[in-house]
Computed example of a mutant assay.
Amino acid sequence: MKTMNHLRKMAGVSMLALAGLTTANIASADTWRYAHEEYEGDVQDVFAYKFKEYIEDHSDHTLQIYRFGELGESDDIMEQTQAGILNFVNQSPGFTGALIPEAQIFFIPYLMPTDMDTVVKFFRESTAINEAFPKLYAEKGLELLKMYPEGEMVVTVDEPVTKPEDFKNKKIRVMTNPLLSETYAAFGATPTPLPWGEVYGALQTNMIQGQENPIFWIESGGLYEVSPNLVFTGHGWFTTAMMANQDFYNDLSSQDKQLVQDAADYAFEAIIEHIDGLAEASLEKIRAASDEVTVTRLTDEQIEAFRARAPQVEEKFIEMTGERGKKLLAQFKEDLKAVQND
Protein backbone atom coordinates (compact mmCIF):
# COMPACT_ATOMS: atom_id res chain seq x y z
CA MET A 1 0.00 0.00 0.00
CA LYS A 2 2.84 2.31 0.95
CA THR A 3 4.52 1.47 -2.36
CA MET A 4 1.31 2.22 -4.28
CA ASN A 5 0.92 5.61 -2.56
CA HIS A 6 4.55 6.37 -3.32
CA LEU A 7 4.04 5.51 -6.99
CA ARG A 8 0.91 7.67 -7.11
CA LYS A 9 2.85 10.56 -5.59
CA MET A 10 5.67 10.05 -8.08
CA ALA A 11 3.16 9.92 -10.91
CA GLY A 12 1.67 13.16 -9.65
CA VAL A 13 5.10 14.77 -9.52
CA SER A 14 5.85 13.53 -13.04
CA MET A 15 2.56 14.97 -14.32
CA LEU A 16 3.32 18.29 -12.62
CA ALA A 17 6.81 18.27 -14.12
CA LEU A 18 5.39 17.51 -17.55
CA ALA A 19 2.82 20.26 -17.17
CA GLY A 20 5.55 22.65 -16.11
CA LEU A 21 7.71 21.66 -19.07
CA THR A 22 4.78 22.12 -21.45
CA THR A 23 4.05 25.53 -19.95
CA ALA A 24 7.71 26.46 -20.29
CA ASN A 25 7.69 25.37 -23.92
CA ILE A 26 4.57 27.43 -24.60
CA ALA A 27 6.12 30.43 -22.88
CA SER A 28 9.27 30.15 -24.98
CA ALA A 29 7.39 29.60 -28.24
CA ASP A 30 7.60 33.13 -29.60
CA THR A 31 6.39 34.80 -32.77
CA TRP A 32 9.28 36.63 -34.39
CA ARG A 33 8.86 39.40 -36.97
CA TYR A 34 10.95 39.70 -40.14
CA ALA A 35 10.71 42.35 -42.89
CA HIS A 36 12.45 42.61 -46.25
CA GLU A 37 12.57 44.93 -49.29
CA GLU A 38 11.15 42.83 -52.11
CA TYR A 39 7.98 41.29 -53.52
CA GLU A 40 6.51 37.81 -53.27
CA GLY A 41 8.81 35.27 -54.92
CA ASP A 42 11.79 37.62 -55.22
CA VAL A 43 15.20 36.68 -53.86
CA GLN A 44 14.84 38.26 -50.41
CA ASP A 45 11.38 36.73 -50.10
CA VAL A 46 12.73 33.27 -50.93
CA PHE A 47 15.52 33.74 -48.39
CA ALA A 48 13.04 34.86 -45.71
CA TYR A 49 10.76 31.88 -46.26
CA LYS A 50 13.67 29.42 -46.18
CA PHE A 51 14.75 31.03 -42.90
CA LYS A 52 11.16 30.69 -41.64
CA GLU A 53 11.00 27.06 -42.78
CA TYR A 54 14.10 26.14 -40.78
CA ILE A 55 13.00 28.04 -37.66
CA GLU A 56 9.55 26.49 -37.61
CA ASP A 57 10.78 22.98 -38.47
CA HIS A 58 13.34 23.02 -35.65
CA SER A 59 11.55 24.89 -32.87
CA ASP A 60 8.17 25.96 -31.52
CA HIS A 61 8.77 29.52 -32.68
CA THR A 62 6.85 31.04 -35.57
CA LEU A 63 8.04 33.71 -37.99
CA GLN A 64 5.85 36.46 -39.43
CA ILE A 65 7.21 37.86 -42.70
CA TYR A 66 6.46 41.31 -44.09
CA ARG A 67 7.17 42.13 -47.73
CA PHE A 68 7.94 45.44 -49.43
CA GLY A 69 5.42 48.13 -48.63
CA GLU A 70 3.61 46.28 -45.86
CA LEU A 71 5.51 48.19 -43.17
CA GLY A 72 6.86 51.00 -45.31
CA GLU A 73 10.04 51.42 -47.36
CA SER A 74 13.59 50.28 -46.57
CA ASP A 75 14.36 53.12 -44.19
CA ASP A 76 11.15 52.41 -42.26
CA ILE A 77 11.84 48.74 -41.65
CA MET A 78 15.40 49.50 -40.52
CA GLU A 79 14.12 52.03 -37.98
CA GLN A 80 11.58 49.48 -36.75
CA THR A 81 14.32 46.88 -36.34
CA GLN A 82 16.59 49.23 -34.42
CA ALA A 83 13.63 50.12 -32.20
CA GLY A 84 12.96 46.43 -31.49
CA ILE A 85 9.54 46.40 -33.20
CA LEU A 86 10.97 43.97 -35.75
CA ASN A 87 13.31 41.14 -34.79
CA PHE A 88 14.87 40.59 -38.22
CA VAL A 89 15.35 42.73 -41.30
CA ASN A 90 16.80 42.24 -44.76
CA GLN A 91 18.27 45.45 -46.16
CA SER A 92 20.77 46.08 -48.91
CA PRO A 93 23.92 48.14 -48.27
CA GLY A 94 22.47 50.61 -50.75
CA PHE A 95 20.24 51.85 -47.95
CA THR A 96 22.35 50.74 -44.98
CA GLY A 97 25.17 52.91 -46.36
CA ALA A 98 23.62 55.97 -44.75
CA LEU A 99 23.83 54.19 -41.38
CA ILE A 100 27.07 52.28 -41.95
CA PRO A 101 29.20 54.22 -44.48
CA GLU A 102 31.60 51.30 -44.96
CA ALA A 103 28.73 49.20 -46.38
CA GLN A 104 28.89 51.39 -49.48
CA ILE A 105 31.97 49.45 -50.55
CA PHE A 106 29.69 47.24 -52.66
CA PHE A 107 28.98 50.23 -54.89
CA ILE A 108 32.55 50.81 -56.00
CA PRO A 109 32.21 49.88 -59.68
CA TYR A 110 34.25 47.01 -61.07
CA LEU A 111 35.45 45.98 -57.63
CA MET A 112 33.34 42.81 -57.57
CA PRO A 113 33.66 40.11 -60.26
CA THR A 114 30.56 39.24 -62.26
CA ASP A 115 30.89 35.47 -62.69
CA MET A 116 28.70 33.67 -60.18
CA ASP A 117 31.14 31.01 -59.00
CA THR A 118 33.71 33.61 -57.94
CA VAL A 119 31.08 35.82 -56.33
CA VAL A 120 29.66 32.94 -54.27
CA LYS A 121 33.12 31.79 -53.21
CA PHE A 122 33.90 35.33 -52.12
CA PHE A 123 30.81 35.53 -49.91
CA ARG A 124 31.62 32.18 -48.35
CA GLU A 125 35.30 32.85 -47.62
CA SER A 126 35.83 36.62 -47.40
CA THR A 127 37.35 37.90 -44.16
CA ALA A 128 35.81 41.31 -44.85
CA ILE A 129 32.33 39.79 -45.18
CA ASN A 130 32.48 37.30 -42.34
CA GLU A 131 34.63 39.08 -39.76
CA ALA A 132 34.86 42.82 -40.44
CA PHE A 133 31.25 43.58 -41.34
CA PRO A 134 29.63 41.94 -38.27
CA LYS A 135 31.64 44.33 -36.07
CA LEU A 136 30.51 47.35 -38.08
CA TYR A 137 26.85 46.33 -37.88
CA ALA A 138 27.14 45.62 -34.15
CA GLU A 139 28.08 49.26 -33.56
CA LYS A 140 24.60 50.19 -34.81
CA GLY A 141 22.74 47.70 -32.62
CA LEU A 142 22.47 45.06 -35.36
CA GLU A 143 23.54 41.42 -35.38
CA LEU A 144 24.65 40.67 -38.93
CA LEU A 145 23.58 37.13 -39.72
CA LYS A 146 24.27 36.78 -43.42
CA MET A 147 25.38 38.78 -46.45
CA TYR A 148 24.51 37.28 -49.80
CA PRO A 149 24.45 38.18 -53.52
CA GLU A 150 21.23 38.56 -55.49
CA GLY A 151 22.38 39.12 -59.06
CA GLU A 152 24.48 41.15 -61.47
CA MET A 153 23.49 44.80 -61.74
CA VAL A 154 21.85 45.84 -65.01
CA VAL A 155 21.10 49.43 -66.06
CA THR A 156 17.83 50.25 -67.82
CA VAL A 157 17.81 53.46 -69.84
CA ASP A 158 15.58 55.35 -72.28
CA GLU A 159 18.03 54.55 -75.09
CA PRO A 160 20.95 52.11 -75.44
CA VAL A 161 24.23 53.16 -73.80
CA THR A 162 27.68 51.96 -74.88
CA LYS A 163 30.01 54.67 -73.52
CA PRO A 164 30.09 57.14 -70.62
CA GLU A 165 29.24 60.03 -72.95
CA ASP A 166 25.86 58.38 -73.64
CA PHE A 167 24.88 59.04 -70.01
CA LYS A 168 25.25 62.81 -70.42
CA ASN A 169 22.14 64.73 -69.27
CA LYS A 170 20.45 61.50 -68.18
CA LYS A 171 18.96 61.34 -64.69
CA ILE A 172 19.64 57.87 -63.32
CA ARG A 173 17.78 56.83 -60.20
CA VAL A 174 19.99 55.70 -57.35
CA MET A 175 19.25 54.49 -53.85
CA THR A 176 19.79 56.99 -51.05
CA ASN A 177 23.48 56.18 -51.05
CA PRO A 178 26.16 58.87 -51.49
CA LEU A 179 28.71 56.52 -53.06
CA LEU A 180 26.26 55.18 -55.64
CA SER A 181 25.59 58.78 -56.60
CA GLU A 182 29.34 59.22 -57.01
CA THR A 183 29.47 56.16 -59.28
CA TYR A 184 26.87 57.49 -61.71
CA ALA A 185 28.38 60.96 -61.63
CA ALA A 186 31.68 59.31 -62.60
CA PHE A 187 29.88 57.48 -65.40
CA GLY A 188 28.69 60.85 -66.74
CA ALA A 189 25.04 60.69 -65.60
CA THR A 190 23.05 62.86 -63.21
CA PRO A 191 22.40 60.64 -60.15
CA THR A 192 18.91 61.12 -58.73
CA PRO A 193 18.10 59.53 -55.33
CA LEU A 194 14.55 58.20 -55.13
CA PRO A 195 12.73 55.70 -52.89
CA TRP A 196 11.76 52.53 -54.71
CA GLY A 197 8.02 53.29 -54.62
CA GLU A 198 8.50 56.30 -56.90
CA VAL A 199 10.75 54.72 -59.53
CA TYR A 200 8.20 53.25 -61.97
CA GLY A 201 6.18 56.45 -62.14
CA ALA A 202 9.30 58.59 -62.52
CA LEU A 203 10.47 56.46 -65.45
CA GLN A 204 7.02 56.51 -67.00
CA THR A 205 6.81 60.33 -66.88
CA ASN A 206 10.46 60.84 -67.92
CA MET A 207 11.34 62.51 -64.63
CA ILE A 208 14.28 60.10 -64.71
CA GLN A 209 15.75 58.34 -67.71
CA GLY A 210 17.13 55.19 -66.08
CA GLN A 211 17.92 53.06 -63.05
CA GLU A 212 19.93 49.98 -62.03
CA ASN A 213 18.84 46.69 -60.49
CA PRO A 214 19.34 42.92 -60.85
CA ILE A 215 17.48 41.55 -63.85
CA PHE A 216 14.98 39.55 -61.76
CA TRP A 217 13.88 42.79 -60.06
CA ILE A 218 13.59 44.57 -63.41
CA GLU A 219 11.30 41.75 -64.49
CA SER A 220 9.19 41.41 -61.33
CA GLY A 221 8.83 45.18 -60.93
CA GLY A 222 7.90 45.65 -64.58
CA LEU A 223 10.61 48.27 -65.05
CA TYR A 224 11.28 47.12 -68.62
CA GLU A 225 7.78 48.37 -69.51
CA VAL A 226 8.84 51.99 -68.94
CA SER A 227 12.61 51.67 -69.38
CA PRO A 228 13.10 49.08 -72.13
CA ASN A 229 16.81 49.34 -72.96
CA LEU A 230 18.81 46.92 -70.81
CA VAL A 231 22.55 47.54 -70.56
CA PHE A 232 24.92 44.99 -69.03
CA THR A 233 27.84 47.15 -67.90
CA GLY A 234 29.55 44.45 -65.80
CA HIS A 235 30.14 46.91 -62.96
CA GLY A 236 28.98 44.81 -60.01
CA TRP A 237 26.55 42.56 -58.19
CA PHE A 238 23.61 43.53 -56.00
CA THR A 239 24.35 42.52 -52.43
CA THR A 240 22.02 42.36 -49.47
CA ALA A 241 22.26 41.62 -45.76
CA MET A 242 20.02 39.88 -43.25
CA MET A 243 20.35 40.95 -39.63
CA ALA A 244 18.66 40.92 -36.23
CA ASN A 245 18.04 43.54 -33.59
CA GLN A 246 21.08 42.99 -31.39
CA ASP A 247 19.30 43.33 -28.03
CA PHE A 248 16.79 40.71 -29.15
CA TYR A 249 19.57 38.42 -30.36
CA ASN A 250 21.67 38.83 -27.22
CA ASP A 251 18.67 37.94 -25.04
CA LEU A 252 18.12 34.63 -26.84
CA SER A 253 19.15 31.39 -25.20
CA SER A 254 22.30 29.77 -26.56
CA GLN A 255 20.04 27.16 -28.14
CA ASP A 256 17.98 29.80 -29.96
CA LYS A 257 21.08 31.70 -31.07
CA GLN A 258 22.34 28.52 -32.68
CA LEU A 259 18.89 27.98 -34.22
CA VAL A 260 19.00 31.44 -35.79
CA GLN A 261 22.54 30.96 -37.09
CA ASP A 262 21.69 27.56 -38.55
CA ALA A 263 18.54 28.96 -40.16
CA ALA A 264 20.57 31.76 -41.78
CA ASP A 265 23.09 29.23 -43.12
CA TYR A 266 20.25 27.07 -44.45
CA ALA A 267 18.63 30.04 -46.20
CA PHE A 268 21.98 31.10 -47.68
CA GLU A 269 22.55 27.70 -49.29
CA ALA A 270 19.00 27.72 -50.63
CA ILE A 271 19.38 31.18 -52.13
CA ILE A 272 22.65 30.34 -53.87
CA GLU A 273 20.84 27.49 -55.58
CA HIS A 274 17.85 29.74 -56.33
CA ILE A 275 19.83 32.50 -58.08
CA ASP A 276 21.72 30.06 -60.29
CA GLY A 277 20.12 30.65 -63.69
CA LEU A 278 17.63 33.21 -62.34
CA ALA A 279 18.98 36.10 -64.43
CA GLU A 280 18.70 34.13 -67.67
CA ALA A 281 15.16 33.01 -66.85
CA SER A 282 14.13 36.56 -65.96
CA LEU A 283 15.55 37.94 -69.19
CA GLU A 284 13.62 35.34 -71.17
CA LYS A 285 10.40 36.44 -69.45
CA ILE A 286 11.13 40.08 -70.27
CA ARG A 287 11.80 39.32 -73.92
CA ALA A 288 8.63 37.24 -74.16
CA ALA A 289 6.59 40.05 -72.60
CA SER A 290 7.87 42.96 -74.70
CA ASP A 291 9.00 43.52 -78.29
CA GLU A 292 10.43 46.93 -77.36
CA VAL A 293 13.20 45.61 -75.12
CA THR A 294 16.79 45.87 -76.32
CA VAL A 295 19.74 44.15 -74.66
CA THR A 296 23.22 45.65 -74.85
CA ARG A 297 26.17 43.75 -73.44
CA LEU A 298 29.23 45.96 -73.38
CA THR A 299 32.39 44.61 -74.99
CA ASP A 300 35.63 44.46 -73.00
CA GLU A 301 36.80 47.60 -74.79
CA GLN A 302 33.58 49.46 -73.97
CA ILE A 303 33.77 48.33 -70.33
CA GLU A 304 37.31 49.73 -70.04
CA ALA A 305 35.97 53.24 -70.71
CA PHE A 306 33.72 52.90 -67.66
CA ARG A 307 36.28 51.04 -65.56
CA ALA A 308 38.76 53.89 -66.06
CA ARG A 309 36.42 56.06 -63.99
CA ALA A 310 36.26 53.69 -61.02
CA PRO A 311 39.38 54.99 -59.17
CA GLN A 312 37.69 58.32 -58.41
CA VAL A 313 34.85 56.41 -56.73
CA GLU A 314 37.37 54.46 -54.63
CA GLU A 315 38.94 57.75 -53.57
CA LYS A 316 35.52 59.08 -52.58
CA PHE A 317 34.86 55.93 -50.54
CA ILE A 318 38.08 56.41 -48.58
CA GLU A 319 37.26 60.09 -48.11
CA MET A 320 33.85 59.13 -46.70
CA THR A 321 35.05 56.33 -44.43
CA GLY A 322 38.59 57.32 -43.42
CA GLU A 323 41.27 54.92 -42.29
CA ARG A 324 38.75 52.23 -41.36
CA GLY A 325 37.30 52.25 -44.87
CA LYS A 326 40.78 52.17 -46.36
CA LYS A 327 41.63 49.04 -44.36
CA LEU A 328 38.32 47.41 -45.30
CA LEU A 329 38.94 48.10 -48.98
CA ALA A 330 42.42 46.58 -48.74
CA GLN A 331 40.95 43.47 -47.07
CA PHE A 332 38.23 43.30 -49.71
CA LYS A 333 40.79 43.31 -52.50
CA GLU A 334 42.92 40.73 -50.72
CA ASP A 335 39.90 38.44 -50.29
CA LEU A 336 38.94 38.85 -53.95
CA LYS A 337 42.45 38.10 -55.09
CA ALA A 338 42.47 34.92 -52.99
CA VAL A 339 39.26 33.53 -54.50
CA GLN A 340 40.18 34.55 -58.04
CA ASN A 341 43.57 32.82 -57.81
CA ASP A 342 42.21 29.52 -56.45
Rank of each mutant, 00 (worst) to 15 (best):
A83I: 01
G197C: 00
E56L: 13
I172G: 06
Q211K: 00
V260S: 10
E219W: 13
W237I: 00
T23N: 11
V43N: 04
D335Y: 02
E150G: 04
S28K: 15
A241Y: 01
G20E: 10
D57T: 13
K2E: 08
K52F: 03
V89I: 08
F122W: 02
E56K: 09
G20D: 10
K326H: 10
G236V: 03
T233G: 03
F51E: 05
H6R: 14
P101L: 04
E273S: 09
Y200E: 07
P164K: 10
P191Q: 00
N213H: 09
D117W: 00
I208F: 05
E56V: 12
K285H: 08
D335W: 03
Q80L: 15
D251G: 00
R8W: 04
G72F: 04
P178Q: 05
I65G: 13
Q340G: 07
P160H: 09
A310P: 11
L329H: 02
F107I: 03
N87T: 01
F68I: 09
S74N: 12
V43T: 15
P178L: 01
K163W: 02
F268S: 05
T162N: 05
H61V: 04
H235V: 01
P134M: 02
K333V: 00
E212R: 14
F216L: 00
G222W: 10
N213E: 14
R287F: 03
E70M: 12
H61L: 01
M175D: 09
A310G: 08
T162V: 14
G197N: 14
A83Y: 06
A270E: 13
L142N: 08
Q246T: 06
F107S: 12
T96Q: 11
H235M: 06
E225D: 10
T190R: 11
L7T: 09
P311N: 03
E219S: 12
E150Q: 14
K257P: 11
D276C: 03
L223C: 01
S14N: 06
V13T: 09
T176Q: 09
L16D: 04
